[in-house]
Design a protein around this nucleic acid. Structure first.
Length: 436
RNA sequence: GGUGGGGUUCCCGAGUGGUCAAAGGGAACAGACUGUAAAUCUGUCGGCGAAGCCUUCGGAGGUUCAAAUCCUCCCCCCACCA
């Protein structure tokens, strides 16, 4: 592994390639040279239209974290300016326009999420908002100074536009302008922070290259770009989609337990790839996963889940989720030699269901008994009473581990075990009910 | 602005007066098999304490014993023309 001179650190480019972050790059050799020197900055844009990031943003987040770990300065750029317009791409309904207050509130919560992965102290990383320069842009000067460098002929040949131009929905003028705005972002970051590298999803290639061109034309300097592959699961689904919708990084929207469960349920074929992308465990250890199967591979999934949860929610939350999973699904030893750098080895699996979804019920109400289907619906294990009936009819509803025979079986105080009732829907979804 | 086509249940997509809570596929859920995996097979898949009732087919009205299906107006999308 080549080491960049002086820093004693692994070269960012090598790390990104090795861990599967790279789809394509511009000028490979020059880019490597650019990153030979420590303290380079590198930016990625984030969309501030929601108040939380989700798993889909994890690849860019991890990439920025690697930027920092390799001795460079990551810049997270929140698209406050572009968010004010509302990106219409691929959306069936018009996205609601966000006001500046919404954007800055979202930017704040996004920053606090990023802060778990990236150290923002002492300018070791920056969080910027492109509204700072886009909001005051004047149209005529912009066209004269920036617009003249763009050839429409070239733009419409860009892959990202091509598809839209040929599709039924077409391409709106706003969307067409995103390339200019994003190129301008890059220029501004280059001017203000000496940022010479932009990374982004593979759909951003055209926009990134446009920024590089703009910098060359207006500043006669080189800048670089890296795109990430689109990460899909081996079964073809996009990352982070579940029946409940997106898997969020915000603990209030997706609990650490559910987050942990999402990762444990990783497809066999994805475990190794995901360990490389979504944890910081050494590649030497991750490569050994290649040879695993059966129970060992399952253990590797728990390590993946533990590490990913630790990154997003901290060590304590990861432990709780892990222990909760152990008490619901069984301990399942993690072999000592497996991915041994993980903190999962520093605490034995214990039974502790603190992270299991739970709620309370009034004692009196419970004593009079509640039909099973009503209870399942009420605690949120099913979406409706009808769904709960079906669940019980199909034998998918369990009370303290026993299958519930009829949808109207009464659940009452006599079912309390150590002060609580454990409900289960299907094989994986648990809910703990205690009396208040 | 004109002409033509279209908006159907989570998604795609049939359905052109009753047999429609609406074909088919996908997704999802449950069961069996397993390893909290995949694949496969079976079942389910609007709501409601059964029969039955209620709400749904872009929106609002109307015709009819009866409408997703017919009529009127409106909204939105697409194509071509201007």
């Amino acid at each position: 592994m080549p080491i960049s001179e002086g820093t004693g650190m692994t070269h960012l480019i090598d790390v990104l390639y090795e861990r599967g972050f790279v789809e394509q790059t511009t000028h490979q050799d020059e880019l490597r040279e650019y990153l030979d020197q420590a303290g380079r900055s590198c930016y990625i844009g984030f969309d501030p239209t929601a108040d939380s990031l989700h798993i889909g943003s994890l690849v860019p987040i991890m990439a920025l974290a690697h930027v920092q770990r390799c001795g460079h300065i990551p810049i997270a750029l929140v698209g406050g300016g572009t968010g004010l317009v509302g990106d219409p791409s691929g959306k069936t309904e018009m996205r609601k326009l966000l006001g500046p207050e919404d954007i800055s509130r979202n930017a704040e919560s996004i920053k606090s999420q990023l802060a778990r992965f990236i150290d923002f102290e002492k300018d070791r990383a920056l969080l910027l908002n492109n509204a700072d320069w886009l909001a005051h842009l004047e149209y005529i000067p912009f066209l004269r100074d920036v617009g003249r460098h763009f050839s429409v002929n070239r733009m419409i040949r860009a892959e990202s536009y091509k598809m839209r131009l040929e599709s039924d929905e077409g391409l709106s003028f706003i969307e067409f302008n995103y390339m200019l705005l994003q190129a301008y972002d890059f220029l501004m970051l280059f001017d203000r922070h000496g940022c010479g590298l932009q990374m982004g999803g593979s759909d951003q290639w055209g926009n990134i290259v446009a920024g590089i061109d703009l910098i060359r034309r207006m500043r006669q300097k080189s800048a670089f770009g890296i795109t990430f592959p689109l990460i899909t699961t081996s079964s073809g689904a996009k990352m982070g989609k579940t029946e409940k919708g997106a898997v969020w990084l915000d603990a209030g929207k997706t609990s650490p337990y559910d987050y942990f469960q999402y990762w444990v349920n990783t497809d066999d074929r994805d475990v190794q790839r995901f360990l490389a992308l979504f944890t910081f465990l050494p590649m030497a250890e991750i490569q050994e996963v290649e040879t695993l199967s059966g129970a060992d591979l399952n253990a590797a999934k728990r390590v993946l889940a533990f590490e990913a949860t630790q990154l997003a929610h901290g060590l304590e939350a990861a432990k709780k989720a892990y222990h909760a999973a152990a008490s619901m699904f069984g301990k399942g030893e993690i072999p000592a030699g497996l991915l041994s750098s993980s903190a999962i080895h520093k605490g034995e699996a214990e039974f502790g269901d603190a992270a299991v979804p739970r709620s309370t019920i009034d004692r009196k109400e419970l004593e009079s008994g509640i039909p099973a289907f009503q209870l399942f619906c009420r605690v949120g294990l099913t979406a409706s009473g009808s769904a709960a009936r079906r669940l019980v009819d199909q034998g998918g509803a369990y009370l303290n581990g026993e299958r519930i025979p009829n949808f109207d079986t009464l659940i009452s105080a006599k079912d309390l075990k150590e002060g609580a009732i454990l409900l289960r829907a299907g094989k994986k979804r648990y809910h703990k009910l205690s009396v208040s």
